[in-house]
């Protein structure tokens, strides 16, 4: 089997005349934590609903495990666990009964309930009605439900939304441990870049365009500049130019694009030789946030 777990082709969804998802080509590889990133309203949930067969694409196709969701929905869903938007639960049932109601449908062994309860650390609260649970506990129960069928692919839509910081950390650690300990591929969506940055190995940014690559490639796009602050910026800049070194001048500081170590050393040496006082040599990175904003456009609604 190919190593692409999810592959969509020009996936498009319209509500009325409004294009909510437009020509999205997702490619998720086995064993990755794929961060599905986009501002609110970008169409993440809609895309995920289509992946799960809850909504039909207006155009385009979806292949999961190499099978078409239109034709082999049930056989695909057997290997998928999911949590869409806010957590789903039956409030009048206990956590255990919630899992049991799903387990019966999955034909999973009863022992699996205790296993997933312990993975999300809800064993102690298993006998309590879920309506009394905190949001974080409901979210964890949702993940437990998603894990019941021993899925190969886990799709989690904004799993940390609305949680307090400790809840966020807990869910994040849980997600990060999953591929290592259970060999699961994970798609996790979020509107927060920092979230994705901390969990994902691959990233897909959905908005007008789609950027899709490994997180480290995204970081590389955060190209660095060397900023040198000296006593007389403008004259130093001219001196460097006369020595054949191009640089930028802004607010009396000198900026070097893509400064290699040798280049920086050379610049510093000529500045010292010409008796300028060097106050600071700093590396300035464009933040991931800035790149995210650049990719998603200003109207991103952040």
């Amino acid at each position: 089997m190919s190593d692409l777990i999810i592959k969509t082709n020009k996936l498009t969804k319209k509500f009325g005349s409004k294009r909510v998802v437009n020509h999205v080509d997702l490619q998720v590889k086995r064993g990755e934590i794929y961060g599905f990133l986009g501002p609110n309203g970008a169409g993440k949930t809609t895309t995920i609903r289509m992946l799960l067969g809850l909504a039909r694409p207006t155009k385009g196709s979806i292949q999961i495990f190499g099978e078409d969701i239109k034709k082999d929905k049930i056989s695909i869903l057997k290997k998928v666990g999911s949590l869409v938007e806010y957590p789903s639960y039956y409030g009048h049932l206990t956590a255990y009964e919630n899992l049991e109601a799903v387990r019966i449908l999955l034909d999973a062994p009863k022992s699996r309930i205790d296993e997933v309860l312990s993975i999300v650390r809800l064993t102690k609260d298993a006998k309590r009605p879920v309506k009394g649970f905190s949001l974080g506990m409901k979210q964890r129960l949702g993940i437990a439900t998603a894990l019941l069928g021993n899925p190969e692919l886990l799709i989690l839509d904004e799993p940390t939304n609305g949680l307090d910081p400790s809840g966020i950390i807990e869910i994040r650690e849980l997600i990060k441990s999953m591929p290592k300990e259970h060999g699961i591929t994970i798609v996790v969506s979020s509107h927060l870049l920092s979230e994705i940055d901390q969990m994902a190995t691959q990233v897909g940014i959905i908005s007008k365009v789609i950027f899709q690559d490994s997180i480290s490639k995204l970081r590389e796009r955060a190209s660095s500049k060397i900023k040198i602050t000296v006593n007389e910026g403008e004259s130093a800049w001219k001196m460097l130019l006369s020595h054949g070194i191009t640089s930028d001048l802004a607010q009396q500081s000198i900026y070097l694009e893509n400064g290699s170590d040798e280049k920086v050393a050379k610049v510093v040496k000529s500045l010292v030789d010409n008796e300028y006082s060097i106050y600071r040599v700093e590396e300035e990175k464009k933040s991931l946030e800035e790149i995210f904003l650049e990719l998603t456009g200003k109207e991103g609604g952040l």
Binding site: L54, V80, E85, S88, Y89
Partner: peptide, 9 residues
């Protein structure tokens, strides 16, 4: 509480 969503996925 989102039962349909969970049930039908």
């Amino acid at each position: 509480s989102g039962g349909w969503k969970q049930l039908l996925s």
